[in-house]
């Protein structure tokens, strides 16, 4: 996702991040900062839309599970998260990163959490794409009798 707003980019990355990987990185970052809940983690559904014929009118395909929450650091910054799945701890971690990215700790959070997550996720996407590429058909034309 190429968004002008860097916050959109990191929130998107966190929403899609593997739960365990995000948790591991947050553990490595150190003790959790002090915060209070503005909205406790809540599991819900989002209706996913598609377009008829991929470019036409909108229609509903079905729902997906998401977890959302909002929190405020003792220093005042507000962190939001809407993440895929039903993990409340993942939502909490994502909201914490979102809040901390608005503090002077942003650079270290980026280096310790966001950049490695991005590298891992790009690597796993590439690994799939590489297997797909190996199944690409190379056609060759047979010489036909009448030629």
């Amino acid at each position: 996702m190429n968004k002008e707003n860097p916050r959109q980019a990191w929130m998107s990355l966190l929403a899609k991040a593997p739960t365990q990987s995000l948790e591991d990185k947050m553990t490595a970052v150190g003790p959790e900062p002090e915060f209070k809940w503005l909205r406790h983690p809540e599991v819900g559904g989002v209706m996913v839309q598609g377009r008829a014929g991929s470019t036409g009118g909108r229609f509903n395909i079905g729902e997906m599970t998401v977890t959302r929450c909002a929190l405020q650091l003792a220093s005042g910054e507000v962190g939001h998260a809407v993440v895929q799945g039903r993990s409340k701890s993942k939502a909490q971690h994502a909201a914490l990163v979102d809040a901390l990215m608005q503090t002077p700790r942003a650079n270290s959070l980026k280096a310790q959490v966001l950049d490695p997550l991005m590298t891992e996720m790009a690597a796993s996407r590439d690994a799939r794409a590489a297997k797909a590429a190996a199944t690409k058909v190379d056609f060759f034309t047979m010489v036909r009798g009448e030629d």
Partner: peptide, 19 residues
């Protein structure tokens, strides 16, 4: 499940295709 909303239409032209 409480309904949090609706997504934007998915852009299948941006799909990372397995097949």
């Amino acid at each position: 499940l409480p309904r949090f909303g609706s997504s934007e239409p998915v852009k299948t032209e941006e799909m990372a295709c397995d097949r």
